[in-house]
Design a protein around this nucleic acid. Structure first.
Lengths: 219, 219
DNA sequence: CCTTTTTCAGCACGAACGTTCGTGCTTGGA
DNA sequence: TCCAAGCACGAACGTTCGTGCTGAAAAAGG
């Protein structure tokens, strides 16, 4: 037997570009022809990597997940459990969105909104990823409570819901209105939210708050 | 001149159906051919109502705005200004999303996420609608503060950001996971948020809170 | 009644879509 | 050195997209 193995680096490059496009135009707006033209390869050649559009979409989600893990989750896991890690998780997420790691903002925000009412494997995959992210935040809350940094009556799922709400809305508002102030609003809200549940409001993590009083005009 | 004027009722029916479809599949997923087949009319006949796809999209946004005003804004304006109206605004929104007035959840959530990174008239229209909604919530906060029901240091734009974040995330989570508990989480969060800024925490509006302690399993 | 005006269905167009096919070219193993 | 496995390519498939054109039915004005 012989023949050359399919270039794994090219595949990664394709998927990275695919995730960039999908973060702006969605996974349906991502077309094989335009992606191929964008990368200077033939449509059928690119198609051969995946075998179907749905498989390309699923592979793109996996690639975006890897980026997400590196940009958001790893920096947080580098911090010891507790309020510090919880804050780092939120801050990494906001930074990941703000730095436009994907040009269309958070890849998963775009794709989730696109598929949340369309049954299929893509939706299932996106939903599973969202659930895992939710669990990660909730477990970070649970850790902080177990360590005595959050009050006993703090409900992890409820607090996770609220924190995630601030992050995703910052992403959405900043994209729609080109308004970077949205991220500061989210940081304010998160700090306030954590302080309200903290046992020690003088915790160093909760000191960085610098509430912005209508500093910037709308562009 | 003669001939019958273009049927305005038919036009409304077209746009109502268009908004339903767009709330699930987006304004790009809304195709003229499928919409026409769905309504039992010809593609070109339907096309004549609008003249271009972009015009259909814009008209659909206007039609959805009218629905939104009737379902969310009017019920709130029927309540006198203050904390009561502010709460009603949030509750009407959550009800509008929860009842699936549009089958894909909030029309504007879907369309905003779809177009927030695509320049054009559609994006501009959606952004303007979002800004107006934001202003409405912020001005309701401002009213409540002026009436002495919220503390002096309450920042309307900041509080509006947080309230909207809870609502939109409830919409997103409930759609993605078929999880009605998300709406209760949002109501909890909103109540807590308002109470934290209220001057009288015994206000009747803030009494309806029944925090749900992990009542329902994930479906 | 007839005429005028407008609506709407049918058809066709070019472009783009995802997908398939056949053909060289590259390459690893015999 | 030669073979054969298999990838990349261009071309074409059938379908659907948005958009024009045309002709017939229908309503309004005389």
């Amino acid at each position: 037997m012989a023949g050359r193995p399919r270039d794994e680096r090219a595949r990664k490059a394709i998927l990275r570009r695919a995730a960039d496009i999908a973060s702006k135009d969605g996974l349906e707006g991502l077309s094989i022809g335009r992606l191929a033209a964008d990368l200077g390869v033939s449509k059928s050649g690119l198609f051969g990597y995946f075998g179907s559009k749905e498989e390309l979409q699923l592979a793109t989600i996996r690639a975006a997940t890897a980026v997400y893990l590196g940009e958001v989750v790893q920096p947080a896991l580098a911090v010891p459990p507790g309020l510090g890690r919880l804050w780092q998780l939120c801050d990494s997420w906001l930074s990941y969105s703000e730095r436009r790691v994907f040009p269309g903002g958070c890849f998963f925000f775009t794709v989730t909104a696109e598929f949340d009412a369309r049954p299929g494997r893509v939706r299932d995959t996106v939903a599973a990823a969202g659930l895992e992210w939710n669990r990660l935040v909730a477990s970070a809350v649970g850790d902080a409570r177990r360590l005595g940094e959050l009050t006993e009556d703090t409900e992890p799922d409820q607090l996770a819901f609220e924190l995630i709400a601030f992050m995703e809305t910052a992403n959405a508002v900043s994209l729609l209105h080109d308004d970077p102030v949205a991220y500061q609003r989210a940081r304010n809200a998160i700090q306030r939210c954590l302080r309200a549940s903290a046992t020690d409001t003088g915790s160093p993590v909760l000191r960085r708050l610098r509430p912005v009083r209508e500093s910037g005009p709308r562009p």
